[in-house]
Design a protein around this nucleic acid. Sequence first.
DNA 1: CTGTTAGCGCCTTCAG
DNA 2: CTGAAGGCGCTAACAG
Lengths: 329, 329
Amino acid sequence: MNDVAKLAGVGTMTVSRVLSGSVRVSEETAKRVHEAIAKLNYRPNEVARALRERHSRQIGILVPNLLDPFFAICAHTISETANEHGYSVIIATHAADADKEFTEASRMLRRQVEGLIVIPADEGPSRITPAEFRNLPVVTLDRPIEGSPYDTVVVENKFGAQLGVNHLIEHGHKRIAFFGLSRTMHTIKLRYEGYREAMRHAGLQTEAYYGNGTQEEMLTAIQSIFAGKTPPTAIFCSNNLIARNAFHALSYMQIKIPETVALVGFDDFETANILNPALTVVRQPITEMARIGATLLFSQLRSKETAVQGKTTVLPVELVVRDSCGTHP
Amino acid sequence: MNDVAKLAGVGTMTVSRVLSGSVRVSEETAKRVHEAIAKLNYRPNEVARALRERHSRQIGILVPNLLDPFFAICAHTISETANEHGYSVIIATHAADADKEFTEASRMLRRQVEGLIVIPADEGPSRITPAEFRNLPVVTLDRPIEGSPYDTVVVENKFGAQLGVNHLIEHGHKRIAFFGLSRTMHTIKLRYEGYREAMRHAGLQTEAYYGNGTQEEMLTAIQSIFAGKTPPTAIFCSNNLIARNAFHALSYMQIKIPETVALVGFDDFETANILNPALTVVRQPITEMARIGATLLFSQLRSKETAVQGKTTVLPVELVVRDSCGTHP
DNA sequence: CTGTTAGCGCCTTCAG
DNA sequence: CTGAAGGCGCTAACAG
């Protein structure tokens, strides 16, 4: 910047002003400065600026990983939204580990991020709390941080499950199994509740299976379940991984969908409609969720006050009927 | 930091030294400092440190988007590798637009990233060049930046296509169509070359279709192609999007795979093996590519010299035979 | 082993 | 409209 100033024959402040446009500078001077900038290929140092201005124009995104399309879509959308606001994003993954989550959040704070958008680790108590991160605006997505006062954006997990299960019930199914991933995951628990209520309301008995996060485990589970005398005639899958694994195992075992078992998944995915049969799912508005979360954060940044109320925004889900439950009753 | 120093009754330098561990500090003093840090919940300001030390411990990742699992896997792997090196990552997307690519790279440079890993925009000449970004270490993934001296990591695109097409030829197919996405994409061009050579080598005529990036377009294309008198008996799909769209259209039209048409895709994806029939693909080592690229960048950072030679690392691909071509001949 | 001085690149404040 | 001084939080270099 000094070089630019010297070349343009002005003081550094003039250069600074030309760049920020905050104060009027005579046109001619501005032109000289611009020429000098171009000649020297000068780029302002945002680090110095951040230090001086005490805000980094940077937010942090903390997700379990970027391999699950659900998280990747969130990260993508947040990143784009941040860009529209002139912010950069730092991304880190916590692999569903609360310690890693805390470590990464701390690192981001040291980097002076102005806010955090996090899809919390689901195992163990999160250590992202106002006690640790005083003043730092945080918005959580997909699930809240238990007992924290942060704004959060989630979907109608329970209602969505009811929607899906009722769809199955309307098709006349009596034995409908719930396939969970982990008993401890917030979203899965809510979806199970929805399942249970729908079943109870219809006077049906519940039947839940957990785990089966890999194709192999699922195959074993399906084999044992369908070796019984009265296997379920329908399965409600609690997330897209479980749905894919179930679909795979059923196809592999040549168990007919929907003739022998009907299938409904929670969370739509790219290839759901090219499966054979195409999978009926409860769709979550992922992009919208991420955008709303980011917008929430930026409005906190603008108003310069961290939300202390912890507003929860619940987004609607939608049943996408395809072919894995047969035709409409 | 001043507060910490005061509370511990030492100078700021002592605090600094305790934190960095660079110089020995007496144990007792160190303890007092640590206590003060804990009491005040002090976190060092990385922005100030970066300004002073003139390196940010931050790299930039620039990808077209995070929606395509291929890019998301790359970003994920780079992010994890960077973390292992104690670096943070800034991520931005360029939506395959060379201007946006340039803008985002510039923004990252202003933020003093120490290096860039980029999956270049494929349309238009990239403006990420040493002329614009003097000294900045850059590694490109998936495709090179034309005429740039940057290290790059790619896969055997041409050979992979030959592998896939030969597999089809071995199954006795004579009319094998190539489904491209864009004529201008570097990877697609190479894959087309592989296709062409394999066909020529077998004395077969080529037949290529481009576009069809949406399910609707693909459906129209497939309808018109299969309305002809001698439609192809096999299709080689140049990437995972095209493969999925083709699969969808074929299923929708109830054209039997592999009986009526055999299908091979380039680039494996999550659900490829739960399709019915499971899709035979040429698999690229995505994670390995990203990890090698990141490692390359970090070794440049360590050696403090930007690669000027532009080393190209070519990674092997692998044919994953599943069911979309029928049984082995 | 510890403290002092100076300055990284920028912008706020105050003078001109 | 423009420039000079000072300091954001930190650490390299030097001194003690």
